[in-house]
Amino acid sequence: MKTPLYYLRIYLSIVTQYIKAKLQYRTDFFISTIGMIFTNIAGIFPVWIIFHNIPSLHGLSFNEMLFIYCFSLLALSPLQLFFDNIWSIWSHLLSGTFIKYYLKPMNVMFYYMSEVFDLKGLSQVAIGIGGLIYASNQLDVQWTLLNIVLLIVSLIGASLIMISLMILAASTGFWIMDPWNVISLVNRFRDFAKYPVSIFNDFFKFIFTFIIPIGCIAFYPSQLFLNPLQDNEMIVFFSPLIGIVLFIIANAVWNKGINSYSGTGS
């Protein structure tokens, strides 16, 4: 019987070996981390510049925008840390090496994703937490026990959204062979998570809430902490659910995909 505990044990042993191997290349870790830090600081830079020119953006202050941005960094971290192998799937599908993931008695997606643990992503977690603490101090957000539980639950739900979208993009590879372009397109949406959905007109509000729910990655869930609880719209409470539903769909599509992928025949 494969319990979650069994998977956790396997994951830890695979990842330990991976990290040992990676630590052979310290300069690479150092340079990649710098790249990651630059990318993360870059994300807030345009907002910071904009706020040099105007006092508030559609009713939001700079600190509120910073809070939403750092929330999005944290919500996108699990994707970066645990699912980075998505970017290599094209080479496995084209060369046929993907077939090896069918040959172990465990979940294919788990086995495939467990092969990479993205060390440089840890800097994103650090920046996210640091920025969130700074912004909530400036905004007087009270971190009661209830709020901390809410934060963790909403972060988990939110992180599933981008993970699911990326898995859906990667799954197209089982039919079209090279999903690189689809993955890069979906990846571009992750940059939009930091913007308030309230700036869009009704049509795009609907799209970014229900069709490509990037608004549920950071904007809606962070309203839970920025506004008094009772002032929020219903969608704010439902956004973690959207992540779970999307993940169930993505998992189903992935499973359909691995059943129809036929390898390369050699």
């Binding site: 340079i31 990649s32 710098i34 790249g35 630059f38």
Partner: peptide, 14 residues
Amino acid sequence: TESIWGICTTKDVI
């Protein structure tokens, strides 16, 4: 160096 990812990403950002 072989770690081109970090260098290219940093360059793109700057």
